[in-house]
Computed example of a mutant assay.
Amino acid sequence: MPLERSPRRVVAESWARARAGRLTPERAEASEPLDDGSLEATRAAHPLAAALPVIRSLLVRDADRGSGVVVAVGDAAGRLLWVEGDPQLVRRAEAMRFVPGADWSERRVGTAAPGTALALDAGVQIAGAEHFALQVRPWSCTAVPVHDLRTHETIGVLDVTGGPDVARPETLALLGATVAAVERELLLKRLQRPRRRARAPQPARAPRLAVLDRDVAQLTAGGRTVELSLRHAELLTLLAWHRAGLSAERLAELVHGRPDAVVTVRAELVRLRHVLSGAAPALAPLSRPYRLPVPVDLDARLVLGMLDRGAHRAALTAFTGPVLPGSVAPGIEEIRAAVDGRLREALLEAASPDLLLDYADRLAPADPLPLETALRLLPARSPKRAGILARLDALD
């Protein structure tokens, strides 16, 4: 497990990243926490949930009343998922939003052990005034990132927060040993997982429409999969996106660019109904306004949902390309721009350097901003910086 370099250099470089991200000590603060439902769903899906008994046994068990210690478990993006320990200190920490569901990444609060450990992918200790945000300076903290031993991917972070004593070397050693135990526990659980038996019958799923990086859309409904022509894909995509429905004039405008093409769009809808009558009869569009009788899982909308939950890596993986790239229908161009723009904006705002480089390689090779943002986020001595600078020079 890599440990921190010279503490003063770690702090200075972290402060520089915070200022480059336009943070100020007076205004840097954690995000509002997730609502209860979103937090529980995020916890349940996170791999560290399986290792909580180990974490509680090695760290939280001794962090009881009067211990002066708070133990936090966060995800790979710096969002805290569990915060436990000395009840009095836990309540005090709430004043600075050190609570489950809050974002404690460097981009939000600047220099603090959870976010800085993730930024450097190394264990760090931040003591008192070394914190960037003013409200965090009465505290000290130690944090170590957690990795998946199979893929070496960072999956989260363990943090101990409290008074000056938690920044002692023995705390870093204890946290490092706990992380090693957690990583081994997760690997062991995966290796011991029994082979899947025959699956029980699954509940009916909503129809799914795949339009990313496709001109021939793919509709899956009722256990069947069919391909749709570009025009039919445009119509079904627009109705799936505008769930409240569209008037004939508005639909004609979104498809043909003019509201007086109503007769044409009505004829096209008749042909679409005919196609769906054999493949997915429950999806035949209703009229006045034109709308779908049941919700459709549009893959483009699913990507946006992942971004809303902070699942940036999953969203980037799911985004295989633009919506119906061969379409020139105005309404499809609007959806395409909305999804492309939302993905780019979310990654620039919150993604790790590795994720930004993946995005630049696969989807935005001519866009300098993801490269510049990754460069700003990387530590000064990262070996990846030279390659990024060369790519930026090639774009000039």
Rank of each mutant, 00 (worst) to 15 (best):
V262C: 01
W241Q: 01
E249Y: 01
S287W: 14
P295V: 03
S229W: 05
R288N: 13
A279F: 03
R243S: 15
L236W: 00
R273D: 05
V262S: 04
Y290S: 03
R258H: 13
T264H: 13
A267N: 15
L292K: 06
H232Y: 08
A284M: 13
R231V: 07
T264S: 15
V263A: 14
E253I: 04
A261T: 06
L276Q: 02
Y290H: 07
R271N: 14
G257N: 00
R250Y: 07
A252H: 01
V263S: 09
L292S: 07
L292A: 10
R288G: 03
V263M: 10
L239K: 02
R273W: 04
E253M: 09
L276T: 00
G222M: 03
L269D: 11
E253W: 13
A267I: 07
R291A: 13
L251R: 00
R224I: 07
V265Q: 06
A267Q: 15
V255T: 07
G222W: 10
L246Y: 12
D260Q: 14
P281E: 02
G278I: 00
D297P: 03
H242K: 04
S247R: 05
A267Y: 12
L238Q: 12
L238W: 14
G222N: 08
A240G: 12
S287G: 12
R266T: 13
S229Y: 08
H242V: 07
V255C: 00
P259Q: 03
H256F: 09
E268Y: 09
E268H: 13
P259Y: 07
L254T: 01
R231H: 11
R250S: 01
R273A: 06
A282N: 10
T237E: 05
G278N: 00
G257R: 04
G257S: 02
R243E: 15
G245C: 08
S287L: 09
Y290Q: 07
V262A: 04
L238R: 10
H242T: 04
L230E: 14
